[in-house]
């Protein structure tokens, strides 16, 4: 079992927060990660900023722009990860072109090797559907990294099977159509998606629009093993800048408590 999968097994309901590395400065990220871990994060997603984030909504687009303006690059990202001393598995979320261009020779191998050396536990690549993932999956397997796939409300039938054959660590359940960003309510699509994924042999974490403890509770009560939350943390960083650690920790704790509170009514998984 991978470190990420084990982190889900070690808790009743996992919290997976996302922040963009380098937002607002490269130096701020380490303290943010420690704060999220202290607040109860079980796995942390660190965004490696790409100039054309087509799967992200305005909140994370702006964070990515701040991080790029502050000088975040793939090399600095990997240095930053190497220097982190947290006990929580770290997942890099980035777009395919940055992985593909890394190193002196074009191709995915150099990035995956460097990511594993830096101590990352997995990758999420939102513009890489399962159809294009053969080479990256092979490289991740060779270096012991999980490759996390996103399952959308529109992912069904044979395509869903292909994703589930290939996913490891956890499956990222996209709560609704659209891009990342905080919303007011939990989507009905979440319940449908969790039902379709009942047979998955990896944990299911629901994201896209999760911003409150109550959302986390409802999602876990609906059967999820965890929640992913990004924009709520990115909003805090947008407001507090380099001084965001305390509030990140408080908000992480609220979401974690919400998630755990959802466990009691959770249906038994078949």
């Amino acid at each position: 079992m991978s470190a990420i999968h084990a982190a889900f097994e070690d808790t009743d309901a996992a919290l997976v927060p996302y922040i963009t590395a380098g937002d607002p400065t490269p130096d701020a990220t380490a303290a943010q990660v420690r704060a999220l871990a202290a607040g109860g994060a079980d796995v942390i997603e660190l965004g490696l900023p790409f100039s054309e984030p087509i799967a992200d909504g305005p909140t994370i687009q702006n964070a990515i722009q701040r991080a790029l303006d502050a000088g975040m690059t793939p090399d600095r990202f990997l240095d930053l990860v190497s220097g982190l001393d947290v006990d929580v598995p770290l997942v890099c979320m980035t777009y395919f072109n940055l992985i593909y261009q890394y190193g002196d020779d074009r191709g995915i191998e150099p990035f995956v090797e460097a990511a594993a050396d830096a101590g990352l536990a997995g990758l999420i690549v939102p513009d890489l559907p399962v159809e294009e993932s053969d080479a990256l999956k092979a490289a991740c397997d060779a270096h012991g990294l999980d490759l996390v796939f996103i399952v959308a409300p529109t992912t069904r039938g044979e395509r869903l099977e292909r994703v589930l054959e290939r996913v490891s660590g956890f499956v990222y359940v996209q709560a609704r159509l659209g891009t990342t960003g905080a919303r007011a309510d939990v989507s009905d699509q979440t319940h449908d998606s969790l039902a379709r994924l009942a047979e998955a042999d990896v944990p299911r974490a629901v994201g896209f629009g999760v911003s409150k403890g109550e959302h986390a509770r409802e999602i876990v009560a609906a059967g999820a093993e965890g929640v992913v939350a990004g924009s709520v943390f990115v909003d805090i960083i947008a407001e507090k800048g380099t001084d965001a650690a305390d509030e990140l920790e408080t908000t992480a704790r609220e979401l974690k408590e919400g998630a755990v509170a959802g466990v009691a009514p959770r249906p038994e998984r078949t």
Partner: peptide, 14 residues
């Protein structure tokens, strides 16, 4: 070429 798009779009593209 290829199809490098978010998962949510793949069914529409198919």
């Amino acid at each position: 070429g290829g199809q490098y798009v978010p998962e949510a779009l793949m069914p529409a593209i198919s």
